[in-house]
Computed example of a mutant assay.
Amino acid sequence: MEDIASLMAHGPGLSQSDWTNFGATQEDHMFDVQEQARILVENIQAAASEGAQTDSESATDFSSTTEPVINRPVNEPV
């Protein structure tokens, strides 16, 4: 019982070494998050580039045709 009483005798908080360890752990975690964000950004940019390339290729294909792509006016009631 005396051990429990001595452990509970102070208020909650972190010692200086606990605070330093907490900061170091969170710093490592933030570096991991930063790396994941960098990878995500690269993937988004690559996908956008692929989409732009596909659009450019499709525009070239459709610009050479003289026939309408569909047989009705676009955005008008049928």
Rank of each mutant, 00 (worst) to 15 (best):
S64Y: 03
E2F: 08
T66F: 03
T25H: 15
E76S: 01
D32K: 12
T54I: 09
A9H: 02
E35N: 07
D61G: 05
A52G: 00
S17G: 00
G23I: 07
A24G: 03
G11M: 05
S64C: 06
Q26V: 04
T54Q: 02
V69Q: 05
I70K: 03
V78F: 00
A52Q: 06
N21H: 09
M8C: 09
Q26N: 14
A37L: 08
L14F: 08
S56Q: 08
S15E: 03
Q53K: 12
I39Q: 12
A59Q: 09
R72T: 03
M8D: 07
E42P: 00
H29G: 02
L7R: 15
Q36D: 09
A46S: 05
L40H: 10
T65Y: 06
N75V: 04
Q36S: 01
E35H: 04
G13P: 01
Q45Y: 04
P68Q: 01
T54S: 13
I39P: 02
D18V: 01
Q45I: 13
D61E: 15
S6D: 11
V41N: 10
F62P: 00
R72M: 04
T20H: 08
H29C: 02
T25M: 15
E57K: 14
A37C: 05
T65E: 08
R72F: 05
A46M: 04
G11C: 09
T20L: 15
P12I: 10
L7K: 15
W19L: 14
G11L: 03
S6G: 01
E2T: 10
A9T: 04
P68R: 02
D32I: 13
S15D: 01
D32Y: 07
R72E: 03
A48R: 07
D28S: 14
M1I: 12
E57V: 13
N75E: 04
T25K: 15
E57A: 10
F62T: 06
V74C: 00
A48E: 12
A24I: 15
S63H: 08
S15A: 05
Q34W: 01
S15Y: 01
S58W: 12
L14R: 06
S49A: 14
D55Y: 11
T25N: 09
G11P: 10
D3I: 10
G11R: 12
N21E: 09
I4P: 02
V78P: 03
